[in-house]
Amino acid sequence: MRQISFAVALNEALKEEMRRDPVVFVAGEDIGKMGGLFKVTQGLLEEFGAGRVLDTPISEAAIAGLGVGGALVGTRPVIEFQFLDFITIAMDQIINHAAKLRYMTGGMVSVPLVIRAPVCGGIGLGAQHSQSLEAWFVHVPGIKVVMPATPRDAKGLLKSAIRDDNPVLFLEHRRLYAATGEVPSGDHMVPLGTAEVKREGSDVTVVATGRTVSLALAAADRLSEQAIKIEVIDLRTLKPFDMQTISNSVGKTNRVVVVNDGWRTCGYAAEIVASIQSECFYDLDFPVQRVCNKDAPMPAAAALERSLMVSEEQIVAACSAAMSS
């Protein structure tokens, strides 16, 4: 099968959905002529015109409102925040409006809105361009949160997100944009809410999100040299997450490491750990381990940045600890 990059896979999903459905439109900063800072919207302006590919002012609250209002009258907006950090300026529209309008109207309206944003550090941009805020949004009823780890899932999940009738926060790890992989051409869909077992193993389950899936697979390779068999689960959708796949795996391995490259305290991993404790307690042979970014703003210097972010070594260490008794 052909190999394309994560960014090209996203671009393909947008083009296919815009061709399929004339009410899908994209809006955001520098997404038109420039094709987006990370090139995800390249070529859309040329193919679909300025009416459906809107280069917005630097007005995040207005961009979000554009999405909510557009969704309310029957279009399917896909809005982009250049960095997830900038969503903080638009929080009223997303938390108080997008997430709640369906509920507050007793189910009268729906908000089919996709919010795309690059997430996490790793390219030296410092504390205001590197945050992984997925836990904030997972916390709020009414929003779905998606985080693909591969080009194949990037395409399939984005297409599903666009066809979903709810607000979906679609998080793209910026270190994955250049990653390549096999991606089916044409109408390849990946349903929201389903995890994937990326590697089967019988000793330790590693539940990972986004970029950390590849770190977990590399850690599994290394541990296999010590005859430790790691099962790696890519959650793919952070909310609603696929507890069944986790439970099935924990029932087999009895040991779990949860990996997420957001902050540790009240982070996304904490929710997964808590769910495993309550639903799989009698299957567990060892306390559930957590590997997360350290609780500090992201520094700019590469050496400092590395020291705070989830690494393959930390996953290896956590799995070894889980096997220690």
């Binding site: 809107l54 999405g67 909510v68 557009g70 969704a71 309310l72 009258v73 529209q93 309206v109």
Partner: peptide
């Protein structure tokens, strides 16, 4: 009626989005 709104100023960007969507259609 796209809704009353409990946030002061919350409905203003939504009105703009609605107008954009309506023009698109």
């Amino acid at each position: 009626v796209l809704g009353a709104d409990g946030i002061v100023g919350g409905g203003i960007p939504i009105a703009v989005g609605a107008a954009y969507g309506l023009r698109l259609m």
